[in-house]
Amino acid sequence: MSVAENIRDDEDDRGFKSGIPDKVLHIDDVHKSFAGLHALSDVDLDVRKGETHAIIGPNGAGKSTLLNVCVGRLKPDRGAVIFDGDTLTGKSPHEINQLGVARVFQTPEVFLDLTVLENVMVPALSKRDGHFKLNPFKSFAGEKAIRQEAIDVIHSVGLHAQLNAPATSMSRGDKRRLELAMGLIQHPKLLLLDEPTAGMARHDTNATIDLLKKIKEGGMTKVIIEHDMHVVFSLADRISVLAGGRIIAQGTPDQIKNDPRVKEAYLGEEQV
């Protein structure tokens, strides 16, 4: 089963027939401060089913903090995060993942002692078997299928040459791609990507864009934090701009490009 096929299957049961786009993720009035520093204030954000939603903003704007609140790493001081009808706030990270939210970390957090294949097998098994499974007598056929699927995903991010290499020996860029593969193998309903191309060479960045575009065709909902405007404008359906912990603008790429507040807060300094 390929990544794309599986996502199409999901799409049919709650499609866009009504004409009103479903909200998959609803961030409701979230506040978070660190010792007096307001990292997030009054953040309201809706992510629609199937869209690629980019969050942009200068360094320290609170983008990663927002994702941390979504995946249960941080508890918001106020407000709630609702995903597909479930309140995520207060749930533990593994529960949130089991609901179908996967995250690709900004600084790669792969399992350094495991091989590339094992790194991808772990999230694959978590998706298949749930949060805990003692598996003394697993059937060979089932194992083979899931292993093959992991190999396919590794192929799709271009790491097949290092399939059985330990992750610790990989370059930083490759670790990022491995992170991506670990997210993709789970076919999440919502994939949160924190600067997936940061630190990548142009060539690798383009490859990643192509890969993400392909998944987009599959219909997976994605939230992507990105610094690289080239990436943002080639992928995003809608963009939210975060500055100083507040959402200062929201809209389509064209709207954002021409928004004077955004230019002032962000685009100006980046020279896009």
Partner: peptide, 24 residues
């Protein structure tokens, strides 16, 4: 086994494992 692989993953990066949907 897969169980053993999860145990090794705990040693390697327990925190990450939680975000992968595993209850350690």
């Amino acid at each position: 086994s897969n169980f053993g692989m999860m145990l090794k993953a705990i040693k390697s990066n327990q925190n990450r494992l939680n975000y992968t949907g595993i209850h350690t």
